[in-house]
Amino acid sequence: MGFRIAVGTSDGVNINLKFGEAKTVTIYEVDDDYNYKLLETRNVNIENGENCNKEPEEKCSSSGCNSNRGGCGGAGAISEKVQLLSDCRCVIFTKVGFQAMKQFEKKAISVFDIDIEIDKALEKIIAYYKKVNGKR
């Protein structure tokens, strides 16, 4: 069965976005023969969560506030963003914050934070999944 991989990229060549700052995520689809193709560019821009309309001091003391750089969102905003990628088997960004990583892990989605070209990354990940699947 095929699967999908989410990639954080601004130019379509390199993985160069952090999860927190990505407003769009590129989705690749891998078919049964482990060939991949670009599926879509998905909009994942979530408006700031409710508790982030407060003053900065308040923000940090309030529960569930996650001070990710490049777009503050509460825990709620992160789950919402993670939910939008819940059909993927793994996600690749240059950096994924701790909260988001936990959320992905809960959904059994693998997180890779790495800074290389998309083609190289996909090649390696697909080769890996091919071996893992073969074992099952």
Partner: peptide, 13 residues
């Protein structure tokens, strides 16, 4: 003991 704590990412890349 210091350890590189390899996870899935290190296995792949």
């Amino acid at each position: 003991i210091p350890s590189s704590n390899m996870l899935e990412k290190e296995v792949v890349f």
